[in-house]
Design a protein around this nucleic acid. Sequence first.
DNA 1: TTGAAAGCGGTACCAC
DNA 2: GTGGTACCGCTTTCAA
Lengths: 345, 345
Amino acid sequence: MAERAGVSVASVSRVLSGNYPVSEDLRRRVMKVVRDLDYVTNAHARSLAGGGTPTVAILINNITGAAFAHVAKGVEGAATLRGWLSLVGTTGDDPERELALVNLMRQQGVAAVVLLGGAYDYDEYQLRMARFARSLDAAGSHLVLVGRPPLEGDVPATTVDYDNEGGAYAMASHLLSAGHRRVLVLPGPAELTTAQGRLRGAERAFEAYGVPFDPGMVRYGPYDDEHGYSAVETALHETPDFTAVLAGTDVVAAGAMQALRAAGLRVPEDVSIVGYDDIPLASQLTPQLTTVHVPYEEMGRVALRAVADRREGGGGRRKGADGDHLVLGTHVVVRNSVQPPSTGR
Amino acid sequence: MAERAGVSVASVSRVLSGNYPVSEDLRRRVMKVVRDLDYVTNAHARSLAGGGTPTVAILINNITGAAFAHVAKGVEGAATLRGWLSLVGTTGDDPERELALVNLMRQQGVAAVVLLGGAYDYDEYQLRMARFARSLDAAGSHLVLVGRPPLEGDVPATTVDYDNEGGAYAMASHLLSAGHRRVLVLPGPAELTTAQGRLRGAERAFEAYGVPFDPGMVRYGPYDDEHGYSAVETALHETPDFTAVLAGTDVVAAGAMQALRAAGLRVPEDVSIVGYDDIPLASQLTPQLTTVHVPYEEMGRVALRAVADRREGGGGRRKGADGDHLVLGTHVVVRNSVQPPSTGR
DNA sequence: TTGAAAGCGGTACCAC
DNA sequence: GTGGTACCGCTTTCAA
């Protein structure tokens, strides 16, 4: 390339990276050859030499989840805006694969690794993440946890979270204030941190309303529509006196809605339903689902901004300071799936 | 690293890449230091030197589309299986951004660039893609088009497609054989190749059934629920005699369903609805949507396999031979959103 | 089996 | 303003 244009490699570099004054003549000469050869610089060589495009890695359990897709969109969008690149890897809920991916990303020299989605709260979790955080930090990278519990102690990681429990509290309150007392609760998988938080929020709401919370009305299970369906189906036999369903996610709510209809019950006339997440599905169902809006895309943007700032800011703000744990708000979106309990049931 | 272990860099390389016989002693010595230092090789240096992990780039309009997410999952899954890495970039339907991304990927030295989703059939399309294909090919990479029209002429690209028109033909036939004659057709955006194919399939079915196809019953618009809603709303005023809706995608069908309900019409008793894509939404709606199944995830897997084979196979099969254009089948999934037309309407 | 050394394709510092 | 050149960290001959 350099010889083809009859100039030095240094000059080519200067023209292409554009961070150095060059004569018009030289620039023209180089650019002509670039066009002739359809030339692009080698990103690997560039990275090796110090320059290079910063890259964020997004690690996700399952790329087909709507909520995660929105976070990814937020990260990707914000990254693109800054000229950063984004890598995506899926873990399939497999800890080994997660580890492998974190290391792979470390090899790639990514600026940050963003881990998405509620975590299973097994004992090792804190240790495992702390290890990731330190590994990445030592390699000049940074760990960002999105929608997961923050790390305890002095660990070099950033957490972007949302008010999970508060959203559930508000959602349950909405049901309670409409007059519902017997509520079927489908929090999600018992071990998942998000499910735990949502359940806790609901309990607190019941407490605040002075309504006894019946643990027998809680049914754990995966965050999918099949669980929503079967849980309602079972409940219809065992504890059929519920007048509302508080689902852990919109997808679970969709399943619940189908089960009710299959049993000849109307929504919301006979039974009210609420969801959580506010993914597009919520407004595609009939009736449109009253749910908790979680700012997924915004979280993605915030996550990227956090690492970008920390990069630019350089030695500016110290770790341990504010900014290591960001919490975004949630709010109830009222649509058409809630009505006061019918006197008939 | 090498000195820390008291061995040569060559030896370290041999141990870590594991493609060369090494003594047990050396291996142990190196691995110990690797663990001590939490060391990972630099992927950029490795790529530069010739080795390196093959990477596929997935370019997508909008990461939040369920159909695309499934293709991405297929590609990513198959890539992971082979130890490949996947990059994801979103174009936001912006041709400039698409170009920028293709070049960016070329810089990254990706093994292949997979372009997802129906293309806008503007004049330049063929030229543009041919240019991409040649650029990538010259750089030792390869272009794969998924769900897009194949390229004409001798262009170094692979196309993975599905029987779009056939699916629409079958879907429309299903409606016709149920007795529907006045069908509201919402193909999607007029310029999008997938929409054109779906419309063509529907027309052919009408022809085959000897039923005159009324162009006045066709309403173009974006592939989203809002369009489905407003199109039905309008049609209810202008051509209210339809007994079924043939939607271009499941999402459009969801919008259509809502509009019908808002107008006090029942689905499928008063009006039948069918979709296209068979994304999870289709079975989450009530009634569950009869739709055309498109093997999105499979397409992703096939796309990756195609490039992987071509890589391994080396000079094996010639371009221009079979294998450059793969077409997967589609089929109708019958659920509960279709009924013979009611005599009342 | 292991080490030495020549690149891979850039960047950036140092002369001219 | 431009050219020369020493690395960046790894893979891969070539010798020992």
